[in-house]
Design a protein around this nucleic acid. Structure first.
Lengths: 340, 340
DNA sequence: TGTTAGCACTCTCGCTCGTTGAGTGCTAAC
DNA sequence: GTTAGCACTCAACGAGCGAGAGTGCTAACA
């Protein structure tokens, strides 16, 4: 009995065919199927021999003896590695279209990205924006609103925007508010959010003037600081998972969804790889709950030089090529929008 | 053989017990269960007789002959009507806590409300905000941002806020932008969004000055007008539905979720009743896909005098009392925030 | 007249047990 | 090296069966 030592061209062709068919149908692939649909010049018996070799090599598995073969993690890995090596990033204009409507603050961009990816791929999308320490205030402005309210807007040097509605004295008109805004911007611009927060906190306690405004600013700055100091993740299309037979069991689907709700878990799934693309298959994800999922991520550049990630989570059986294209397209758009 | 003509006190007690038990367990309720857990002074045989009467009256149904009884739509209706008639709206402080964090533009409030309701009730929540025609601009302001950008903020007389980032000449500093803002506010305040849009569109075509800004405003106004002219609905906690055995079939769950994605369908479900509370049970919902769901809604006041709705969608087997409390609490908060 | 015990009856649920069919591995021939 | 043929295996499906839950009915009782 002679052991096959490695994979040759034909074995690889067959393996690829099996992966393709399995990705399409989610059913174990039999030798007849391959011989009829993919390798018409070979008989099913020949394919059987090859498949047997591929199984011995660890690329295929049989759910049970009289079922067809199913690609193993090793097979996907081979397939994906090949895919990644020969990759030229295609810039997809379709992805850009999702962002044309509203160019707004970072959070909106992230959310839009998650939606775009989930719609394009029909899988669950995850987008991460890295934390940004040391955000500095660039401008601070009060916009008059009806009935003694004002919209407080803080803009940072990176272009992040946050606003909140605060109460102000009814006596203050637009010009008065602008005067205050100017004064505040002058004093506070260039300071980090933490500094702003501390300065105003102290102020508000001392003086008894218009503390409401100062308190509002301190609150918003603190909230902004807190939010920007932690990585942000957004999920899109979470219930796309129901479209796949792997999750026709409600308990599995629920387990999947519950992982999505824990931000820390998601972080764990997404981060890690420094490369432009990363594919983690099954156990490679690190989370036991996700043992039969794959996580495909692409990184994008954010101003500070840090990297953010866009990703897709789905069953290991996944059209990796399509998913990678989508991710690279959306990632490219994000780099453009948030980079520099 | 004598036919029972109507329900008496004891029948009603038994019926209520059956509903309670069924809501709790989702299993057909047998006579023994009632006699042991709820009406300990009566034997199961007596309960059986009563149940048989209740079935003849249309309040109960049997999935099959040797199963227990299940409440019918008519039973739920009786139960709910009673619930509604004796209702004093309890203002729940817990609901208010959800809104303490960020008081922002209307859309955020709506989203927060949907999340709050879905978390409190563990069902799928839907919140609707009615369209507001004739929104008038109250203030319009440009906030400087780094690198030749500016945040354009439009505030309406109702307190709705919308903003967008636009490009502006790098030469314009904060004061210049404020001068423009002042001028624009002066010219445009009091105008409806449609008017603003038309005026600026014409302007931008004529002049060749800083059309970028004008175009930006026109775009934002148009978008705002479009959005405020249609009712808005938001869904929260859509996958809570997976927690209920009624939807352990993935196909059912998917069908349910797909209804949630069609805004028009949702509208249909929500709107209609003018009362403070409305409960539509099973077929009463009007949508065949929702034939075994109930929709519970409460209305809240919006500034313009129109009514918005907060609602919960779930299986007909639902703890209506709890759901109503939650809705009335959140609805109350919304009335406070958006009313007047 | 209302309540209750007893009993026969019905129907679902879960189990086992063949049967079927897809797919394999092996052997022998080409 | 490839292929036809054949015996073999095992999941999936359906039928058949027993157990258990719950009913309706009848007859006795208060």
């Amino acid at each position: 009995m002679d052991h096959p030592l490695e994979i040759d061209a034909r074995k690889e062709r067959i393996l690829r065919a099996i992966i393709q068919d399995y990705v399409l149908t989610a059913m174990p692939v039999g030798s007849r199927t391959i011989s009829r649909k993919y390798e018409t010049s070979l008989s099913s018996a020949t394919i059987r021999n090859e498949m047997s070799d591929l199984e011995e090599l660890g690329y295929l598995a049989q759910p049970h003896v009289s079922a067809g073969r199913v690609p193993s993690v090793k097979a996907y890995r081979l397939y994906v590695d090949e895919l990644l090596s020969g990759r030229r990033v295609p810039q997809d204009a379709a992805a850009r279209a999702y962002f044309s409507q509203r160019v707004r603050q970072m959070e909106d961009v992230i959310t839009t990205a998650a939606q775009a990816i989930s719609e394009i791929t029909r899988y669950t999308a995850v987008v991460m924006m890295p934390k940004q320490l040391e955000l500095r205030v660039s401008c601070l402005q009060l916009v008059p609103m009806p009935r003694g309210a004002a919209l407080l807007v803080i803009v940072t040097d990176t272009g992040a925007i946050r606003d909140t509605v605060i109460r102000v004295s009814e006596k203050l008109d637009g010009d008065a508010l602008y005067a205050i805004s100017r004064m505040l911007t002058e004093r506070l611009s260039g300071k980090t959010l933490q500094e702003v927060q501390e300065m105003l906190g102290a102020y508000a306690r001392q003086s008894d003037g218009d503390t409401q405004v100062l308190q509002g600013i301190a609150d918003l700055a603190s909230q902004m600081a807190k939010q920007s100091a932690t990585d942000t993740v957004t999920v899109g299309g979470s219930h796309n998972i129901l479209n796949y037979p792997e999750y026709s069991d409600v308990d599995k689907a629920r387990a999947f969804l519950s992982v999505l709700e824990k931000k820390e878990r998601l972080m764990q799934l997404l981060s890690g790889s420094g490369d432009a693309f990363s594919v983690r298959i099954g156990p490679e994800t690190g989370l036991p709950e996700m043992a039969d999922c794959s996580v495909v991520t692409a990184s994008y550049r954010v101003g500070s030089g840090h990297k953010g990630f866009v990703g897709v989570i789905g069953p290991t059986r996944m059209p990796y090529s399509r998913v990678l294209s989508a991710l690279s397209a959306v990632g490219g758009v994000l780099s453009d929008l948030l980079g520099e």
